[in-house]
Design a protein around this nucleic acid. Structure first.
Lengths: 208, 208
DNA sequence: AATTCCGGAGAACAGTTGTTAACTGCATGG
DNA sequence: CCATGCAGTTAACAACTGTTCTCCGGAATT
């Protein structure tokens, strides 16, 4: 039987975390396909060979980062997309939630935006998979809404995909405005809100 | 006076083209920040130092690729977004046009999608600038449309941005489906059409 | 208390990288 | 026709890369 805790495993997890954090930091100014294994271990202060005790390659580390960045985000979906009395209020809440997430985890957001179409296939695949799960969850939530009565399955899928893509666009918009003066950040939120509102309008008149 | 043609300058342009093409080819499986100067010259069959006769660095080459990939695309905007009798017909024409462009220049599209949020700042900047120009042109075209009567400047800007983003999303969707069976490509076109149609519906009911 | 297990260190490997300098050959302009 | 300009070459540089093998110390197991 393998103890889940213990001095040994705890220390291992600590260096693993250090590797992930160091990589995430280095990835703010480059992309994964140019991230060197030695570069990461040097930043942590550990021997290059120690890297192999945790990851097969930097691509492997990238996949782990994807799970970390997106895996813990699923619970957020339900509360965001779920129906509310006021449509505008739900939109405002969603925009605020995205803005807060970007401010709290900018490196994670940058990593996803960068590697979604990046040069490392397994990582692209992992992101695509997570986003597909997101879309499916959004679709399931949309199906509950009374607004979606009479919608075809393809229509629901289309709208869910649109929402997921819009979420990423909004996130990367906030990311660009992170270090900018507050006025620009306000304008970003304004734009995102307007766009979501237009989609919402299109939604309510879809079956005309 | 410097002759624009001549055996000398012609040969220089030929190797320059060879460098750009080789780089574009190599960038199908990696990102710019990991693209080596020697890698490019080796692919062309030229000495590494010859690279410097054309570009200061690989980032510089990247900027040149951006101009090549997006610079020649501006004339397309007007004809695509310009008003038509039938809205659905315009949408279908736009989707077809994007699909055709992706099929004709897949490497260019992949490059833009990859480096838009990639690890090389000057290239990101160049892409951002070109896309901003696109958005402005789309906005100018939208302003002419009778559907946009009574729209505020911020509303027009929002919609133009939405269209530009949607164009990129659609392009990268087609890109993923390029080597896939025809049925998947058809579904991609279907989804893109539906999404544009929903935006169109939202547009016509915006001022309710 | 003795033994196994295992995360990490150390050294060495062949190969790669960007950049420099000094060169060569040939089209160009006077 | 001769002198200049300049795209491309050759050689060399220090620094870097991923990966292998061997080893060490201490926690975990018995």
């Amino acid at each position: 039987m393998s103890h889940t805790s213990g001095v040994r495993q705890a220390q291992k997890q600590r260096t693993r975390r250090a590797l992930l954090d160091a990589a995430l930091g280095l990835l703010e100014e480059q992309s994964l396909s140019s991230l060197g294994l030695r570069e990461v271990t040097r930043a942590v202060g550990v021997a290059p060979t120690a890297f192999y005790r945790h990851f097969r390659s930097t691509a492997d580390l990238g996949v782990a980062l994807v799970e970390e960045a997106l895996g813990s985000l699923h619970p957020m979906i339900r509360t965001t997309v779920s129906p509310a009395e006021d449509s505008d209020e739900r939109i405002a809440r969603a925009v605020e939630l995205i803005a807060g997430h970007v401010a709290a985890h900018p490196a994670h957001v940058r990593f996803i935006a960068r590697e979604r179409h990046g040069g490392v296939q397994p990582v692209r695949e992992a992101i695509r998979e997570q986003l597909a799960r997101f879309a499916e969850e959004v679709k399931a939530e949309l199906a509950k809404d009374t607004t979606s009565a009479g919608w075809s399955d393809a229509d629901l899928r289309m709208l869910a995909g649109l929402y997921v893509d819009q979420m990423l666009i909004t996130a990367s918009l906030f990311l660009e405005a992170l270090d900018a003066p507050e006025e620009e950040r306000r304008r970003a939120a304004e734009t995102a809100t307007r766009q979501l509102r237009l989609i919402s309008v299109g939604r309510t008149h879809w079956l005309d």
